[in-house]
Simulated assay, not measured.
Amino acid sequence: MTQQDRARIATGLAEGLSYAEIARRLDRPTSTVSREIARNGGPGDYRPQRAQHATARRARRGTPAPARAEERLGGAMEERIVELAVRSGLPRMTARVHVDLLLAEDGRRTAAELTRRLGVSAASVSVSVKFLVEQGYVRRERDPRRRRDVYVIDDEAWYNSIVISARQTLESAHAALATAEAVGLDTPVGQRLAKAGTYLERVIGDMLSSAERWRPVLE
C-alpha cells in the first residue's frame, strides 16, 4: 500500500466513510483496508505518515512474522468463502461475520472488533451474531474485566450447529406426522404428510447418530 493510499484512507475515515466504501475508492479488498487501519492505531487514531513509517520499520526487521489466515488467503478467497456461505442460506452480513470469526487466529472477536473490521454498523453485527449464536455456530462469552461480550467460534461449534439444525427439522417432521393423523392417514393429504414426516424423522435420526459418532474428530 502506498503513502497516497494511506492518505486517502485517513481522509475517508475523517469523512465518516465505511471501510467498504474506502476500499471501493482504493480498488482494494475491504479486508486489506480493515487490517491496515487495525494495525496502525484503529479508526480513531489512524495517521497515514505514521502507518507508512511503521510499515518501513517492519520491512527493515527482516523476516516477517507468519501471515495470519486471512492474510494468506487474500481478499478474493475470503469473498469466495462468503459467497459459498450465502449460497448455503446465510444472509450476506451474517456470512461475513461468520467468515471473519472463522479466520480469526484465536476464533474470538468482540462486537466492536467485528464492527470495525467489517466497516458496518453495530446494529448489523448485533443481528448477525444473534443469529449465529442461536444456530450454534458461535457462542457468547462475557469478559468480566471489560464488561463486554466476546463471540467465539471453536471446533465444537460444528457439532452444535448440526444438532440444533437437526432438532429444528425433527420438530417439523413430528408436526407433519401429527397433522397427518389429525386429517386422517387414509386421506391423500394425510398419506403425503405421513411419508414426509417419516422420511425426515429417519434422515435426521441418522444425521444425529453420525454427528455423535464423529464428534471425537473435533477433540
Rank of each mutant, 00 (worst) to 15 (best):
A56L: 11
R58Y: 03
A59V: 01
R60C: 01
R60Y: 02
R61F: 02
R61S: 03
T63F: 02
T63E: 09
P66D: 04
R68A: 00
A69K: 02
A69M: 09
A69P: 00
E70F: 05
L73E: 00
M77G: 00
M77K: 04
E78C: 03
E79V: 00
V82G: 03
E83K: 04
E83A: 07
E83G: 02
L84R: 10
A85H: 04
A85R: 04
V86D: 05
R87W: 01
L90H: 15
L90T: 08
P91V: 07
P91N: 06
R92I: 08
A95I: 15
V97C: 15
V99A: 13
A104S: 10
A104K: 01
D106L: 11
G107K: 03
R108T: 13
T110K: 03
A111W: 00
E113G: 08
L114N: 06
R116Y: 03
R116C: 05
R117M: 03
L118V: 15
L118Q: 13
L118T: 15
G119Q: 11
G119P: 10
V120G: 02
V120K: 02
A122P: 05
V125A: 10
S128R: 01
S128N: 10
S128L: 09
S128D: 12
V129P: 06
V129H: 08
F131T: 15
L132Q: 07
L132A: 07
L132C: 07
Q135D: 15
Q135C: 12
Q135L: 13
Y137W: 15
Y137Q: 14
R140I: 12
R140L: 14
E141R: 15
E141P: 04
E141K: 13
D143K: 10
R146H: 14
R146C: 00
R147Q: 14
D149Q: 12
D149H: 14
D154V: 08
D155R: 10
E156Q: 13
E156H: 11
E156R: 13
A157C: 14
A157K: 10
W158H: 07
Y159E: 06
N160W: 11
S161N: 06
S161C: 14
S161W: 08
I162L: 15
V163G: 06
V163M: 14
I164D: 07
I164V: 15
A166T: 11
R167D: 01
Q168T: 11
T169W: 00
L170F: 07
S172M: 08
S172Y: 09
S172F: 11
S172D: 09
H174M: 05
A176Q: 11
L177R: 14
L177A: 03
L177W: 06
T179A: 15
E181C: 00
E181A: 01
E181T: 01
E181Y: 03
V183F: 02
G184A: 07
G184E: 04
L185F: 09
L185C: 04
D186N: 10
D186G: 12
T187Y: 11
T187P: 10
T187G: 09
T187A: 09
P188G: 08
V189M: 09
G190I: 01
G190C: 08
R192Q: 11
